[in-house]
């Protein structure tokens, strides 16, 4: 597998993401409620939890496309980010080739006006090879299968060459072999010193491949080393949370920390 870039900054204990009493949601209903914690540089972390438990909301807050309702979500300075949403707003009927889609990943490097260079084209080719789509560069995106498109989007993340990689349910509708390949890619990213946060539903996969996990059910159930956190007991607790918005839910009182301040 070709190396995409030299190793990122050396591992240390520095926090890449710091959540301070983060509450985020929609229409005054909290989907993530008073979450505290840190993700350290070089972590490979899974976020697990039932449907509607706030996993995507948390990711969106970190990316910055959703503003917190209270608290803060801080990403360390000079950290570049790559984000693969669960429901892409990708227009598959748009007349673009796979190459063009992957090329979007050059945005942080080349921006609006800088010319693409040979090394950029090389980078795109390498990324397509890394996800097993080397023959697909010139294919129109509307001819790809769901799993192939997902791999193309992974290639775009590769091209982004980011320090912090946030993937929201990237393994949906993806076959086993592809999942294995993509997980190998996640491990490689971690080995390169990148921080990787992934929303995953397959608990066996989490136990096998992710050293760290956050069990979320609007509020955090547990956060730490996967073996201690992804337990039958914690998952049962997570499943008991009330999924639906409750229009009669109590207004949340200010958090104790805020009262003291």
């Amino acid at each position: 597998m070709p190396a995409i870039s030299a190793n990122k900054k050396p591992l240390n204990n520095e926090a890449v993401i710091s959540l301070r009493d983060l509450t985020a949601g929609y229409n005054r209903h909290a989907a993530v409620h008073h979450l505290n914690g840190e993700v350290r540089r070089g972590a490979l972390m899974a976020i697990v939890g039932p449907n509607g438990s706030g996993k995507s909301t948390l990711i969106k807050s970190i990316v910055g496309v959703l503003k917190p309702m209270s608290g803060t979500c801080h990403v360390a300075r000079d950290v570049t980010m790559a984000y693969l949403p669960q429901q892409s707003e990708l227009d598959r009927s748009f007349p673009a080739r796979v190459k063009d889609l992957v090329q979007l990943g050059l945005w942080q490097r080349r921006g609006l006006l800088s010319r693409y260079r040979n090394e950029d084209r090389q980078r795109i080719t390498e990324a397509l090879c890394a996800v097993g789509l080397e023959e697909f560069g010139d294919r129109p995106i509307d001819t790809l299968s769901g799993g192939q498109l997902q791999r193309a989007l992974f290639a775009r993340v590769l091209v982004q060459d980011a320090d912090l990689i946030l993937l929201d349910e990237p393994f949906n509708a993806v076959d086993e072999k592809t999942i294995r390949d993509l997980v190998a890619l996640l491990r490689r990213w971690q080995a390169e010193g990148r921080t990787v946060v992934v929303v995953v539903h397959d608990l066996d996969l989490v136990r096998a491949s992710f050293p760290e996990a956050l069990v979320l059910a609007r509020r955090p159930i547990a956060w730490g080393p996967t073996a201690q956190v992804v337990t039958a007991e914690n998952m049962t607790r997570a499943r008991q949370f009330q999924e639906a918005w409750n229009d009669d839910a109590h207004w949340c009182e200010p958090a104790p920390a805020l009262q003291e301040a």
């Binding site: 990316v63 910055g64 496309v65 980010m81 984000y83 949403p85 892409s88 707003e89 990708l90 227009d91 748009f94 673009a96 063009d100 889609l101 979007l104 945005w107 942080q108 921006g111 609006l112 006006l113 775009r156 982004q160």
Partner: peptide, 23 residues
């Protein structure tokens, strides 16, 4: 000519553009 790349990105994948740029 100036905004070509952003226009294409905004058509092709608007959420991606929002995640990397304020354009």
């Amino acid at each position: 000519a100036l905004f070509w790349r952003a226009l294409v990105a905004e058509c092709l994948d608007p959420l991606f553009l929002r995640s990397v740029s304020r354009l």
